[in-house]
Amino acid sequence: MAGQPLLTVRDLVVEFPTRRGALRVVDGVSLDIAPGEVLGVVGESGAGKSQTGAAIIGLLEPPGRIAGGAVHLEGQRLDTLSGEQWRRVRGRRIGAVFQDPLTSLNPLYTVGRQLTETIRTHLDMTEAQARARARALLGEVGIPAAGERLDAYPHQFSGGMRQRVVIALALCANPRLIIADEPTTALDVSIQAQITALLKRLCRDHGTAVMLITHDMGVIAETADRVAVMYAGRLVETGPVDAVVNRPLHPYTEGLMACIPTMHDRPPRLAQIEGAMPAPRAMPPGCAFHPRCPLAMEPCVSMRPPMVARPPSAAACWVRAPEPEPVS
């Protein structure tokens, strides 16, 4: 990656304290996002991808907390910020788009009021200037008759249009990074394509980077520049999207790609990964994937594999990416 990364995450650990000890839902995740880059974060439910996103933007659901590691945005450390300091970063320099647009919109205020309020919180603008910007943003995200729609309430928009409003809200203060957590999952397929295309176009136009968290590999294949694959709270593989989809290194990534049905053929059977992802409380020793892995060997069951570069990708796997000098 050329130049300075916009966001760096190093050895991030997220824990939920419980009466029976802390549950570790994100376990040593390190990743970088370059300015203007779309990083796809994929994994199945419980893989820790949403918790990673929430930790980066300072919105972990209590009692969840960052128990280790560091997050830097353009050199500024984020994970140690106080609530008040966070409010100046969130919205201003990092925007968020979540799965359900209704959770991001206040049902009691018009869309225009929510937009102008957000704009004026972060940018030094008069009411009239903010309203003009709000109208321009609504137009930019493809809402017809933007001027009139400013005075409409969220319930008067369709699901797809609401998600456009949320994207406008995230873009209010021209942030450098948008965390989009399953932004199209609640939408119908024909609307999904519109929203991903919109997100891609806006970020290209504004030079905004995106961390796109999703379980949908098809969306990733069409949208992301690079992909990070998570399994059981850990990163198992990162690399350019084409390499991860077509030449996966990690056996989990390989299994995941193979078991996705496609419209283009009808095999007699789908490839399947036996078993299920372990719960945080029942994490196996060594590589978390070894109980389901067809390639598992001796070190896999006892030692946790480190991320090892295998250009253009990197993977945490003793078999596919052993260390240059194996410790034996």
Partner: peptide
Amino acid sequence: TVPDLRRPD
């Protein structure tokens, strides 16, 4: 409109 993993557009 369905994004396809193997033939992304």
